[in-house]
């Protein structure tokens, strides 16, 4: 068990015993990853902050539901499980989104060309284009992709978060990347 996991374990035990300071430490430690996970799942900073608040409220109230059953169990796995559930709830409630404005493929390709500093506006456009492509993925593929590419979670850990087999994770990642290669081909060909 690494040091962070061990520290988390101690903090969770303290939190379950009613120590608000321990919850405060976990909140500060994990707010950034949780907000960014939700930002990429929901595509909106405002929604991500709102959903992340809900995640931490659920964690605070549901601390007793989390039990370390094996030495490999991690607080972060449970946290991402809760975050995923909250993201699914938000996605269900959401109305269909307006299509994003898009720059021309040539502009986007120029903006990510090596050695060419992308302007802020172009970088935002690229971000929007990627966000739009990721938003088209089914929820399960999106979750697997976000955890793998933006949180560097190994497939085994993603399988724990998604409560599925490693093979399923690999399959979801493969399909997600195949779709994104097609959607983002103008950026990839630069």
């Amino acid at each position: 068990m690494d040091r962070r996991t061990e520290e988390d374990r101690g903090l969770v035990e303290r939190m379950r015993a009613g120590d608000e300071g321990a919850f405060g430490i976990l909140l500060n430690r994990y707010q950034r990853p949780v907000i960014n996970f939700l930002y990429r799942m929901l595509g909106s900073a405002e929604d991500a902050h709102d959903a992340a608040q809900e995640v931490f409220v659920r964690v605070y109230r549901g601390a007793n539901r989390f039990a370390y059953r094996t030495a490999r169990d991690r607080f972060s796995t449970w946290l991402f499980q809760v975050a995923r559930n909250v993201a699914i709830d938000h996605l269900r409630r959401r109305r269909p989104e307006e299509p994003l404005d898009s720059a021309s493929p040539a502009d986007l390709a120029r903006a990510v060309a090596p050695g060419t500093p992308a302007t802020d506006a172009a970088a935002r456009e690229i971000g929007d284009r990627i966000a739009a492509a990721v938003a088209e993925l089914p929820e399960d593929q999106r979750t697997a992709l976000v955890l793998a590419e933006y949180h560097d979670l190994p497939n085994g850990e993603i399988a724990n978060v998604m409560r599925c087999s490693v093979k399923s994770v690999e399959s979801r990642l493969y399909r997600a990347k195949r779709f994104l290669r097609k959607q983002l081909r103008h950026l990839l060909e630069s």
Partner: peptide, 19 residues
């Protein structure tokens, strides 16, 4: 290449009053 392009979608910072 895909990894590099995906990383172009930057993350966000938590609001100062989030906690």
């Amino acid at each position: 290449k895909l990894k590099r392009v995906l990383r172009e979608w930057r993350g966000i910072e938590p609001n100062a009053d989030f906690a």
